[in-house]
Design a protein around this nucleic acid. Structure first.
Lengths: 177, 177
DNA sequence: CCTATGTATGTTATAAGATAACATGTCAAG
DNA sequence: CTTGACATGTTATCTTATAACATACATAGG
């Protein structure tokens, strides 16, 4: 199972990213991540307030990315503020703490499944079921660093995203054709 | 000079991506690329109409990315239509033909400097001078493919973008500090 | 020559994503 | 119990992107 270079402090399903594309005990993903989020926030002197925690829970509901306005709608329905900044502020907070990631290709946000670990993930987005997996990207990242430093360029932040077909949807599409 | 795996059919400065970050005879970049664009469009049975050609010229003016509305403003000033679809249609056309790239991190577009060659480029964006370089990304791309196929995922399109400091701006910043 | 057809452009309207700026509330240290 | 830092609420606006329909334009077939 541990076929990827990945910390073993990594909770639940996080060490097996293919889980995003298949059935699994999803409570692992949520419970462990929420617990780590609390710890991480405390360690940083930041407060995981009700809105922020709730947004993280919403993002954790499944392995998809949600737009800020989707999140906002949920929040509003639950009695939180119903103006865009409410959602954006919570999302930005989570992204800053490394508890969520922004998927630029989708203008959307997804929960991070292994917060606290230094990682520059690559995202695999299935164009059919919309699931998003955080793939182990250490080799990708080094290749990118190499390409950049060959040009004298210093990378500070990067986003690596791929759109395609997850195993399940590829099978389904093959069957249909 | 030819230190990157790169076709030698590649025009002018395109084979030396670091040019984006330094002084150079920029007419190479524009003239050669425009010529190739014409050829490529013809080969595909597509028409490089005045608006489309002009948009490409505008993108080629320097190694930056321009937002659709920036392009639109230029077009409007020159007597073309002044509504968003005018710009978006031309930009989409160029992207589809591989004559331009969309930089998602910036919600902007940049001219492709080696159209016609199969390539899945990585973009290096300087956060200070806003120049964008198209880095040779073959190794990055293979690493990403490997990570994806380990999960059974099939990549169809991908975007690899990095934000940071180009050599010139890094020097300047070092001096200032 | 001309007219039918596909493609390109123009234009109106609106959807979708994001942020600036200011007012109000809350919590915990002094 | 008050002050200061941080969090939330709210208004307004800005930026980015697309849907839908109308008009023009080129060109291959009659």
């Amino acid at each position: 199972m541990a076929q990827y270079p990945h910390s073993d402090a990594c909770p639940g399903c996080a060490s097996t990213p293919e889980v995003a594309f298949s059935r699994h005990d999803h409570s692992h993903c949520t419970d462990d991540t929420l617990a780590r989020a609390e710890a991480l926030a405390q360690a940083q002197g930041a407060r995981l307030t009700p809105v922020r925690r709730r947004v993280l829970e919403i993002l954790l509901e499944d392995h998809r990315a949600l737009g800020a306005y989707d999140v906002l709608q949920r929040l509003a329905a639950e009695g939180f503020g119903n103006q865009p900044p409410v959602a954006y502020r919570a999302l930005d907070f989570l992204v800053d703490l490394g508890l969520a990631h922004r998927i630029r290709r989708l203008n959307a946000f997804t929960a991070c499944l292994h917060p606290g670990e230094a990682h520059a993930p690559a995202f695999l987005i299935c164009r059919t079921c919309n699931h998003v997996a955080e793939a182990p990207a250490t080799p990708v990242r080094s290749a990118l660093d190499a390409a950049a430093s060959a040009l004298g360029f210093t990378i500070e932040r990067s986003n690596i995203e791929a759109l395609g077909l997850c195993p399940a949807c590829a099978t389904a599409e093959g069957a249909a054709a």
